[in-house]
Amino acid sequence: MILVVDGLNRHRYTKLLDQMFELRARVFRDRLGWDVKVEDGKEIDEFDALDPAYILGLNDEGRVVACVRALQTTGPHMLSDVFSAILDGEPPLRSATIWESTRFCVDTDVLDRGTSRHSVSFATCELMVGALEYSRDAGITDIVTVIDPIMNRVLKRSDCAPYDYLGSTTPMGKTSAMAALLDCTDERIDRVRAFAGIEGDVFADAETEAALADDAPAQGGGADMGSLFDLVQAQPEPQPTELEQYCLDQVAAAETDEERDAARRLAAELCRAGMVSDRALAAINC
């Protein structure tokens, strides 16, 4: 069963989100050995603060066994930032109808092999169907997804092979990472559904959604969404530091692509050294 948690309802699903962050820590730090920040057993990065959408796969006991995170490619996302090496330093795709998916993983400790409802294969397919249908219903046509070679193999075996890849497979931790392209067409969704024998609606219905919430059932009221004014106030854009401004000026003043690339490389270097913020780097790379 699939549950979508985003900025609108995440306050109701903190327990499920914690399970997801713990799953990500086990997969990306422990199993894949990626350089991710884990605190208190949870892998959480700066993109989790940007109100992404999480597509969660839950087993019959309501436990998170699969997850993926989606962001728009028009705004800050991983390929425009920490995963830029995968694209050989090239700027990422940017389109209203392309989303990025990252942190795609399944729980191999809980799921078994084979093809039953409790298998890795089924959980992966169900998550794919959920992610593809959620994207399609939002008017999205294609997804660029960052995956490791094992996940790539699972996709190929599930009749959900990427139609292309961007950049190159890049060493990352104990394994490597690649950027794959998937279309959100009905043909692909039908193929994955047929492969795993998934019929009917994969998304949790309203009743189940309510039952899965932290303190179920919390009806009515709704979140205090504050006002747009608070929203602006709550996001005071930090003024660029002198050094960040220098980098911005260098990029703006670049007359050739080489000069611009050089200015960006410098900024990336300074960012790695912690002297330029990720936010400023994103602005520099846009």
Partner: peptide, 15 residues
């Protein structure tokens, strides 16, 4: 400043 459609959309990636 209090239109819920705007507030909700600002926290969602989907329409």
């Amino acid at each position: 400043n209090r239109d819920p459609a705007l507030l909700a959309a600002s926290r969602s990636i989907a329409p």
